[in-house]
């Protein structure tokens, strides 16, 4: 039972090993009650492994973790009663209606029939599903299914909500709608949210604090604004009209020791000294007789932090240190 009830999530020296592969490497992490915490990293960084351990689906190799006051491995059933989980793959019964799905979930979480009816009405209204409540799920759009899945995770009013890439596959309208709902849940209902996402803009907009994973370890952890400040450098982006120019640009980036990456015909550079680097770049482009389009100088985004902390040198992008 309780050792560290002050945190919603408390992970200590957590390691998960699959054969020779270390998915989580001596991980330490705390998330306070009420936080909206983003857990980010490239595919295979260990995000899903951590979520599976924290939601009782997987046992760690070594180390300890508490969710609320309950210790993983000792109090798994209590943990399942107190958390809400919406995984990347929506988990709804397609042969039941939206209302039936919610009612069953309420009853399985121990609500009485009367409490269940009231809670279902409340959730249907909150998630904009009242009109479609009596329809079977085959008539629901992807966005509606996702909202229902989230509503199912909330029937028992959990204090902690785990979301594994909740907006993957959603169109922008549904994504923004879900963002609003998540903000409400965090701000108004005070639910602690632990989110993994591929969309860094999403983490930037929603999360109070984010952690970047790389090879099973946290390599940066702070508020999104602090992380961007710590990166400290503006970003230059431009496109070239022909892919023929790309090899020369890559050579120049390497020769001039610029931090940059190339995606298709688009070049993205992290500056050290904005004015000097912009001047050097434009001069070289002119001397090389390369015309450019969409030349922009902007503040770094979480994407830049992500690239800086998670990409290996083999990936063609140099590693920038993020001080913690």
């Amino acid at each position: 039972m309780s050792e560290t009830p002050h945190f919603a999530i408390n992970v200590r020296h957590l390691t998960k090993q699959y054969g020779d592969f270390l998915a989580l490497n001596n991980l330490d992490l705390t998330v306070a009650y009420g936080e909206f915490f983003g857990f980010l990293g490239p595919n295979g960084a260990g995000k899903t492994t951590l979520i599976k351990i924290l939601t009782t689906l997987m046992a760690p190799s070594t180390g300890e973790a508490w969710v609320g006051e309950y210790r993983i491995g000792d109090d798994d059933e209590a943990i399942r009663s107190h958390i809400g989980v919406a995984l990347q793959d929506v988990g709804v019964d397609p042969l039941l209606t939206g209302r039936e799905n919610l009612l069953l979930q309420c009853r399985l979480f121990g609500l009485s029939p009367r409490q269940s009816q009231a809670r279902v009405d409340e959730l249907l209204d909150q998630f904009g599903l009242t009109t479609a409540q009596h329809q079977r799920l085959r008539t629901y759009s992807g966005g509606m299914r996702r909202r229902l899945d989230l509503a199912l995770a909330l029937v028992h009013k959990p204090l902690i909500l785990f979301l594994d890439e909740p907006t993957t596959g959603l169109d922008p309208t549904n994504r923004f709608m879900l963002w609003d709902l998540l903000r409400q849940l965090n701000h108004d209902a005070g639910i602690t949210i632990f989110l993994t996402t591929q969309y860094l803009e999403e983490a930037d907009v929603l999360c109070n604090r984010v952690a970047f994973m790389r090879q099973g370890q946290i390599v940066a952890e702070d508020t999104p604004s602090h992380l961007k400040q710590q990166l400290g450098h503006d970003v230059v982006t431009f496109s070239v009209p022909s892919p023929d120019h790309i090899p020369r640009i890559e050579q120049w980036l390497q020769k001039s020791n610029m931090l940059g990456s190339v995606t298709g015909q688009r070049v993205r550079m992290t500056t050290r000294d904005t004015l000097a680097d912009v001047a050097q770049t434009t001069m070289w482009l002119q001397s090389a007789n390369i015309s450019v389009e969409d030349f922009h100088v902007s503040s770094p985004s979480l994407d830049d932090v992500f690239l800086a902390v998670t990409n290996s040198p083999e990936g063609g992008i140099r590693h920038a240190q993020i001080s913690e």
Partner: peptide, 17 residues
């Protein structure tokens, strides 16, 4: 099998059922 394929079985596993 239908529940496993639809992901609903996982949802049930994540509940205290």
């Amino acid at each position: 099998i239908r529940d496993i394929d639809s992901g609903y079985f996982m949802k049930l596993r994540l509940s205290p059922v």
